[in-house]
Amino acid sequence: MFKVVKRKELAPIEFEILVEAPRIANKAKPGQFVILRIDEFGERIPLTVVDVDPEAGLVRLIFQVIGKSTAQLSKVMEGESLADVVGPLGKPTEIENFGTVMLVGGGVGIAALFPIVKGLKEAGNRVITILGAKTKDLLILRDECQEFSDELILMTDDGSIGQKGLVTQAMEEVFAREDIHTAWAIGPSIMMKFCTITAQKHDVPIYVSLNPIMIDGTGMCGGCRVTVADSIKFACVDGPEFLGEEVDWDEFISRMQQYRPEEMQANEIYEKQVSQNG
């Protein structure tokens, strides 16, 4: 059992938890993830490791409520436990001193971007970070990203903070005045696709972190397979980071929809149970 020692609502429907998992806290590197299962009836869901405290044995996770399991996870209170947490999984981000780097995060993807921002800054890069969300409330980890960025650009759909517009506009603006060595983009798949197109226009390699459907997360089922550079890769062991220009985006986005009816059904039943039993 893995105890949740802290729980915090970061934004409407976005939560942060600190989970006691000393082995994972000792080993996790930027870019890696865990798979957790809430209870014996639960499914296995992947979440990026946002940060670790090896001394306290804690792993920091951030998630958005998008369906049954994340809704249930948001109701796990401090002192309660998760049945299973396994990791760190996936390949770590290759962190080195590249020079000037650009990092683009969207929505809850900012949580997965933050450890890379931090890692790249600590490796001596000049870090330009662009964060985007629908509104100010959803622009999580602003202060922490600020701390590890040389420049932080905020974009919102409604202009409630920073500039009004999309992250790709901010990317263009930066490309116009900076010589960028490497870029990263993490967020909704459609955002990552367009960030890739934007970076490609400027011949800048851009890494994306894919979040396909996963079950075991250890390379034994191929549920998370993606086509990268025309060959089949398993995101859980070969990724989750890949070069954006090599990803077959349309196929990836299509496969994400695979269980939409079942996901809706599970969520409806859960909401009914919650409304009946509190």
Binding site: F41, G42, E43, S69, I215, C221, G223
Partner: peptide, 24 residues
């Protein structure tokens, strides 16, 4: 599917008892 995914969903995750179990 790979047979591994199909059977893991059913056996390990109890997918045949969806939605009592969460994995479809």
């Amino acid at each position: 599917y790979s047979s591994s995914e199909y059977l893991t969903r059913i056996n390990l995750m109890h997918g045949y008892q969806f939605p009592k179990y969460d994995t479809p």
